[in-house]
Structure formats: C-alpha cells, structure tokens
Deep mutational scan, measured.
Amino acid sequence: MALNTPQITPTKKITVRAIGEELPRGDYQRCPQCDMLFSLPEINSHQSAYCPRCQAKIRDGRDWSLTRLAAMAFTMLLLMPFAWGEPLLHIWLLGIRIDANVMQGIWQMTKQGDAITGSMVFFCVIGAPLILVTSIAYLWFGNRLGMNLRPVLLMLERLKEWVMLDIYLVGIGVASIKVQDYAHIQAGVGLFSFVALVILTTVTLSHLNVEELWERFYPQRPATRRDEKLRVCLGCHFTGYPDQRGRCPRCHIPLRLRRRHSLQKCWAALLASIVLLLPANLLPISIIYLNGGRQEDTILSGIMSLASSNIAVAGIVFIASILVPFTKVIVMFTLLLSIHFKCQQGLRTRILLLRMVTWIGRWSMLDLFVISLTMSLINRDQILAFTMGPAAFYFGAAVILTILAVEWLDSRLLWDAHESGNARFDD
C-alpha cells in the first residue's frame, strides 16, 4: 500500500549564491595573561575582544583620537594649579581661619623630617597626573615632529594605576569627618577644581587605549598563520617573532617567553612588605597634641575612634588600611606557593584573586592621604596640633611594595603550573 505524501511548494523562490571570495581570516594573537594562541577576527570600533580561555580583555573598544586626548590633557593642565594650590577646605580653629590644600599637606610631611613619605604622596597625587598630561601632550606634538614615541607609550600603561586623584578625593571626605570634632569646616574653591580634575582624569584614563596608539604610530604586520613560536610582548602586546637582537619589532624591548626574574622580584617585594606591615600596624601612625597632652593612634585605634562619629567612614578606612593590605599579602603568598608547588586545582579562583588584588591594591594609600591633609588643617603649635607617627613611612612603603609585587608577577606562570593543553579552566 503506497502512502500519498503531499508536496510542499515554497511560496518564495530560494536563491543560492556561491561564495565568490575567501572568507576573511583572523590574525593570530597570544593572550598576555595566559599565553593562549588564538585567531582574533577583525574588530570594529566600539567592540571589545576577550581571550577565549581566561576571559582577559585583549582589545578595548573604547578609543579616543589623539586630538581629543590632547584637549583633555590641556584642560587638566589648566585645572591643576587651582586643584593643588587653592584651598580645598576652610576650618575655623580657636577663632582663626585655616586653609588646607594639597601642596601644603605634602610640605608639612616633608617639613617634619619625613621627606620619603611626603614624596610618596607627591608622586601619586601630583607627579603621576602631571606625567600623564605631559605624556599625552608629548605624543600629540611628537607625532607631528617625527619624534620617538616608544618610551612614552611604554610608560603610559604602567602609569595608570599610580594616578590616585580619586583616592585622594575620598581622603578629603575622611579628613573632614575627623577634623569636624575640633573645628567648623567649609569647602574651599580649590575643592571644585579638584573634583573637576578627578572627573576629567577618570574619563581620560578610561578612554586612553595605549594598544590602539601603538597600532597608529607603529603598525606591524600581524601573524596570519598559526605558529607556536609566536611570542607576545608584555610592553606593547604585539604578537610576532623577535628581531635579530631578540627584541620586539614594535617597542624594541627584549621579547622573552616569560617575564625575567618574575618570581624572585615578586618574592622579594612580598617578604619586604610583610616585614614592614608589622611596625606599620604596631607603631603610632598619627599623633595629636591637645592642650599640651599627647595622644597617639595606631591604624586600628584611629579607626575605632573614627567609628564613634561615623561608622560608615570608619568601615571604608578599615577596608583600605587593614583589610586590603593583608588580603593582598595572603593572596600573593598563596599564588606564589601554588606556582612553586605546581598546583593544578582552583586555577579559576587564583586568576580571579590576582585580578582582584590588581584592582584594589592602590586604595591602601588612602590613610597616607588623610594624614597629609589633616596635617595641613590642624597645626596650632602646642594648643592643638596633628602630626604623623613613625608607622606612616612603614605603611606607605608596604603598600608600594605590594603594588610592585602584583605588577611583577607574570600571570602566565600560573598556567605553566597548571596542566598543559587546557582550553578551559575551572575549579
């Protein structure tokens, strides 16, 4: 018995066209964080690309023209004298008006014999932002004059995390709450300039795509075929072959399989920071003279006294001054041990922890910024005066060393310790 099946006739004509040209192939790229070699397709503007294995951002879609970056830099340069030299806060102490600005706080630190601690604050609040705007201006002028731009481009990517104007702005709020127990506070004209400078700096850093600047100024022929001998440069993120001198053909720094002496430098910085954190938390970090009496505060006791007036601000200072430094030390110690013992479990967790400490590390400088600003506000000789204690130097040095330890660690070593050939990683 035959089955009668109805015929289905399409209502619209289906047209099949042959592909007349070869589909576009992607360029081969190595991930600078996990060293995976993959094919990167062509990316349009405002599109980002991520590593298929570790999800690290390979290409950032946010990109401004150099002219727009230069305009932002010149605007920031105009704001800087007002943000640093004009009063941020006014207080009335014992019937006398006192003005506080950024430069005055750094000068008070240096004047009291601790120039190293003052230079830490100076670099993060004044030096690094000033280098940022002058570097962008150098790129703008240098591109037109045919100057060598490689050193500036190499420095810009590392400079971003040292620009800490946003953290200093939080420190202004913390210092205001600490001082309000002794005097009446009012915002100064410099505060508005400083807030504007923070906003412009944040926007500029978020749109400063150094890798795209490398592509514009020093374009290189990408690798179009897969080759395990391809290496990625950690300076400019170019994937290719080393030249005859073993250097990256684009930025001219040595092109090595792994960062040289990464573990040794990381261990040295980490152990030194552990040693410095002990006096930083045991010795007094601030000293207040009130009517001839002397009151010393460690980091913890200062947080407890701050909690009596504002528990939320005390929580912020606790996280930045105690929780973050010790968390960074514990995480980095764990990561280094996992590399030495070739741990194969929990790779995803370790990668996330490394990215976390990379982002939060700079916030530990908050305590030094609060001390710097408070020193310029309260300084009335023996009637009422505020000065920093010996722990300030140890704390600042420990924070900087932990930042350097994270920067010096080559994250690809975590993958080397893991089993080879993993296309995915999980716990």
Rank of each mutant, 00 (worst) to 15 (best):
K12E: 13
A18N: 11
I19R: 11
D35Y: 07
L37T: 13
S39A: 11
L40C: 09
I43M: 12
H46N: 11
S48G: 12
P52R: 05
Q55E: 12
Q55H: 11
F82W: 08
W84I: 08
W84R: 15
L93R: 01
I96W: 03
M103Y: 09
W107H: 15
A115N: 05
T117S: 05
M120W: 04
M120G: 04
A128Y: 01
I131C: 04
T134C: 12
S135Q: 02
I136N: 02
A137R: 00
A137S: 07
N148A: 03
N148H: 02
R158F: 12
E161A: 13
V163K: 05
L169T: 10
A175C: 11
A196F: 12
L200R: 00
T201F: 10
T204A: 07
S206L: 15
N209H: 06
V210I: 12
E212R: 15
E212N: 13
L213D: 03
P219K: 10
R221W: 10
A223C: 07
R225H: 06
R231D: 03
R231W: 04
C233A: 00
C233H: 00
G240Q: 08
Y241I: 06
G246N: 05
L255H: 05
R259T: 08
R260P: 03
A268N: 07
A269W: 03
L271R: 00
I274H: 11
L277Q: 13
L277W: 03
L283Q: 11
I285G: 01
S286V: 04
I287T: 08
N291T: 12
D297K: 07
L300I: 06
L300M: 09
L300D: 02
G302V: 10
G302E: 00
M304I: 07
A307P: 06
S309H: 04
N310L: 04
A312D: 04
G315V: 10
F318E: 03
A320E: 00
A320Y: 15
I322M: 10
L323C: 14
T327V: 14
M332Y: 06
M332N: 07
F333A: 08
S338Q: 14
I339S: 08
Q344P: 14
R348L: 08
R348C: 12
R348F: 12
L352P: 07
L354N: 11
M356T: 11
M356C: 12
I360L: 13
I360D: 00
G361S: 06
W363H: 07
L366E: 08
L366A: 09
D367A: 00
D381T: 03
T387P: 00
M388D: 07
A391D: 01
F395Q: 02
V399E: 01
V399S: 09
V399I: 04
I400T: 04
L404Y: 03
A405V: 04
V406H: 02
E407K: 11
L409E: 00
R412W: 00
W415M: 09
D416H: 13
N422L: 14
R424Y: 13
